[in-house]
Design a protein around this nucleic acid. Structure first.
Length: 485
RNA sequence: CGGGCUGUGGCGCAGCUUGGUUAGCGCGCUUGACUGGGGGUCAAGAGGUCCCGGGUUCAAAUCCCGGCAGCCCGACCA
């Protein structure tokens, strides 16, 4: 590397300026909307609360899907698909479940031009319809464990929609499992939490998460225990990024799932369910984005390296194409930007907004010296390197992006996390970040007080940050309190 | 459910108070030239049921009535 210059030129640190994003500090929600639009991630759909996921956003989702799917299958799951439409009566079979979801159901009352005898609901989640199948499939202890995952869309009617974070229809993965024992079910729920969710969020997306279990108030409708991953976004607010539930025997009793154990006795099995959604794309935007746009970890970047031809020049194009094929041969997702009829600044800004981790600028000036320019998105640094070293440098840079994004996010989160002693202090701290409060200082009454102040217990953990065991006394745990999306 | 606000080219807005030729502006788009290492400059263009229906008037984006849609705040829900 022969030089090392910051490229932060010509931007305004605050406020709105022509052609740039509103700064995160000025108005975070406004910035969020602008990034999603400018990076071409998504548009609003014509029906309120619906979302058009554009190619760049969908490509991110496909990469995330692939990472998750591989880990889910490693955990022993098989993929399947269940219907979008569920008989309304199914929802009513589990009391807490129906009570939890009723307000947000979309219900189809007409079909084929006539009133339906029994309305069907558009799935808000698939516990009921999948358990209907489980009841038919499971007879013997030899059928267990049953571990099924589905990739699907679900609908929960939302009154306050936000792209990716809270939309009426969204895409997700939902896993549903059946086990012979409570311990095995619990272990499995935790295995998904750790080996699939936390690992993907931290190692692949570079987003650190706090994990723990929900209070009774925040628990999934129908679950006996809900485990969660909570991330801190760039404005200090909490985002629930994934949940894994122990369902106990609630659904197996409601749907009559029974198996004969090895002694021939009929038993109700123990279940789990778990899911993450396109909301994770919102997390990616809010956890890593800066005032210049998205910053993507390479594993989730539809394009890891863009090779930009600065000029329409035969030698420039030749070198750019040669770098392109070298990088491709090295297994990188790479794209050539040779739209030299469009301004260089416009193109640079465009790739920056989209969060492409590395740009390789190939121009006559560099080539004259046998160099190319490497631009590192997450640090906004430009360095000139020898042409022959370019692929190796790109490789080195891409190799450290995710860890550096994660370190930055960890530092930010830790600076905004404070230990306090009661609900009032917790609410205060939660206005900018997370408060850690002993559950014994809070309790359900303190939890209500927090709700009045606009914040919630995101999860409960051991004082050392570990997950609680069943044997842990509730009063020995610590609550993570924050304002939530 | 209560209160407030807004509907005008693809997007964001002005015009409405005080009715009057051809409804403007920014961004985006098209074409061309000059440019070119961070949203460049200039020129020429395309693009409109002014939300819908009715009324007043010689004349309505503008005034009146009704409807529809959306947004914000509050309440409710979680």
């Amino acid at each position: 590397m022969t030089s090392d210059d910051d490229v932060a030129t010509g931007h305004r640190p605050t406020g709105r300026a022509k052609g740039t994003l509103t700064s995160r500090e000025t108005d975070f929600p406004q910035w969020y909307q602008e990034v999603i639009s400018a990076a071409e991630l998504a548009d609003n759909g014509p029906v309120r609360g619906t979302m058009v996921i554009r190619p760049w956003g969908y490509a991110i989702w496909e990469l995330l899907q692939a990472e998750l799917d591989r880990r889910i299958k490693d955990a022993g799951a098989e993929n399947a698909y269940f219907p979008l439409f569920i008989p309304e009566s199914f929802l009513r079979l589990e009391a807490d479940h129906v009570e939890g979801f009723s307000p947000e159901l979309a219900v189809v009352t007409h079909g084929g031009g006539r009133l339906l005898e029994e309305p069907v609901v558009v799935r808000p989640t698939s516990e009921t319809i999948i358990n209907h199948s489980f009841a038919k499939w499971i007879q013997s202890h030899r059928d267990l464990p049953m571990i099924i995952n589905q990739w699907a869309n679900v609908v929960r009617w939302e009154l306050r929609p936000r792209l990716f974070l809270r939309t009426t229809e969204f895409l997700w993965q939902e896993g549903h499992t059946v086990h012979a024992s409570q311990e095995e079910a619990r272990e499995f729920a935790l295995c998904i939490l750790r080996n699939v969710y936390i690992e993907t969020m931290s190692e692949v997306a570079g987003i650190p998460v706090l994990a723990g279990h929900k209070t009774a108030r925040e628990r999934f409708a129908g679950a006996v225990q809900t485990w969660t991953c909570e991330g801190m976004m760039g404005d200090g607010k909490a985002l629930q990024m994934g949940t894994s539930h122990e369902l106990g025997q609630n659904f197996s009793r409601a749907f009559g799932i029974q198996y004969a154990d090895d002694g021939g006795q009929l038993q109700y099995p123990w279940q789990t369910s778990w899911g993450v959604s396109t909301r994770l794309i919102g997390a990616l935007v809010m956890a890593h984005g800066d005032d210049f746009g998205l910053r993507l970890p390479p594993a989730l970047a539809p394009v890891e390296v863009v090779v930009m031809a600065v000029r329409d020049d035969a030698e420039v194009i030749r070198v750019a194409e040669s770098l392109l094929s070298d990088l491709r041969a090295a297994g990188r997702r790479v794209r050539l930007d040779d739209r030299t009829d469009s301004g260089f600044g416009r193109r640079s800004v465009g790739w920056e907004l989209k969060g492409v981790p590395v740009r390789l600028e190939v121009g006559p000036r560099d080539l004259g010296e046998g160099n190319v320019t490497v631009v590192v998105r997450h640090q906004r640094k430009k360095v000139q390197v020898r042409l022959a070293e370019a692929v190796a440098v790109v490789d080195e840079v891409l190799g450290r992006v995710t860890a550096e994004l994660r370190e930055e996010a960890v530092g930010f989160r830790d600076r905004r996390t404070v230990e306090v002693g009661g609900p009032r202090a917790a609410a205060d701290v939660a206005s900018t970040g997370f408060a850690l409060v002993p559950w014994s200082d809070l309790g359900e009454e303190g939890e209500r007080e927090l709700a009045d102040a606009g914040c919630t217990v995101r999860c409960l953990r051991r004082p050392d940050g570990g997950l609680a065991e069943a044997s842990d006394a509730p009063d020995s745990l610590v609550a993570v309190v924050g304002r939530a999306y």
